[in-house]
């Protein structure tokens, strides 16, 4: 927990935050509406004798009362997909519509890409990309299990991604669910902080800036880009968005989120950020008894 000490000045009720980070997290699933309605999925869970609780902020997210969420009929049929509750936030903020062209830059293993497809009623095009070929096989497995027919899977570095292979040259929306130091997953992976170093923050934030920049460029004017990480470090969050604001044509915009959260930071470690970064959301584990996440929504302005 030591690396988290640096967030004492920015987290309200820091002791509750630390205590939450030490508690392990239960099993949550997302209802895959490509294959089943919420009613059908919950009826299948009931038939299996599996208890559940619906998340207040999103009826498609269920907290399960079982230790083996993967061995239910609901899961076998692809009615449900194991996905941490806060990890269901970014796709709902991107809010894609049926028929649109959407880019998921860092998509493996596919929890959010298949959620985007479901939000689009599986109509339109979700380009699900990842630079790691090994993780692409997990992405493909999940896409097929969940019956997502609107996914096109590519294996490239998002930083210099080319759209030449497609018959369109820009996206309506893009999701950058960036590789990160994963501090917010500590409740699922107790060793998440083991390799923590400031040097890693520098290295990964360079990659994050490159990916977000490319995502803004590849998205049409008036289109939306969502930037998210499962980490608390401002170097990987507000500083990355600030870099995009400086270099690309985009601005931070508001979004509604019915989960308790804190505003994005406007300063950290002597650096000042655009005031509009307050519109980003920092979700801490003690606020809703979940993992941690950062989400910012951008509008492309040219």
């Amino acid at each position: 927990m030591e690396p988290l000490e640096r967030y004492r000045p920015i987290v309200d009720d820091f002791e509750a935050f630390l205590a939450a980070c030490e508690r392990s997290l239960g099993n949550a699933v997302r209802v895959n509406t490509i294959k089943a309605s919420v009613d059908r999925a919950t009826a299948a869970l009931k038939a299996d004798g599996v208890g559940y609780e619906e998340a207040d902020w999103n009826p498609r997210v269920l907290r399960l009362e079982t230790d083996s969420p993967g061995s239910t009929w609901a899961s076998f049929h692809g009615f449900t997909h194991g996905q941490e509750e806060v990890s269901a936030v970014p796709a709902t903020v991107l809010d894609p519509e049926p028929g649109e062209r959407v880019w998921d830059c860092c998509a493996a293993p596919g929890g959010k890409a298949t959620q985007l497809a479901a939000l689009m009623d599986d109509r339109g095009t979700v380009v699900a990309n990842d630079s790691n070929l090994g993780r692409i096989s997990a992405l493909r497995f999940n896409a097929e299990r969940l019956g997502a027919t609107s996914l096109a899977v590519t294996n490239d570095d998002a930083r210099n991604y080319s759209l030449e292979r497609f018959d369109f040259d820009e996206f309506d929306r893009s999701l950058v669910d960036a590789p990160c130091s994963c501090e917010g997953t500590i409740r699922k992976n107790p060793d998440a902080l083991d390799g923590w170093s400031e040097g890693y923050l520098d290295e990964v934030s360079g990659i994050q800036k490159g990916i977000l920049g490319r995502a803004v460029q590849a998205t049409r004017e008036g289109g939306t880009v969502v930037y998210s990480t499962c980490t608390f470090a401002p170097e990987e969050n507000e500083a990355v968005v600030q870099h995009a604001l400086n270099k690309e044509d985009c601005r931070v915009v508001d979004f509604d989120l019915d989960l308790e959260h804190s505003p994005g930071l406007t300063e950290w470690d002597g650096q000042e950020y655009d005031e509009r970064l307050e519109r980003a959301a920092r979700i801490y584990p003690h606020q809703n008894d979940t993992g941690g996440f950062f989400v910012a929504k951008l509008e492309v302005t040219a």
């Binding site: 095009t125 097929e144 609107s150």
Partner: peptide, 19 residues
């Protein structure tokens, strides 16, 4: 494979819709 999205033919990518 069955696909709901748009793409030119031929296309060299990892997957298109589902088998």
């Amino acid at each position: 494979w069955i696909y709901a999205g748009s793409a030119p033919s031929p296309i060299a990518i990892e997957a298109i819709g589902m088998t």
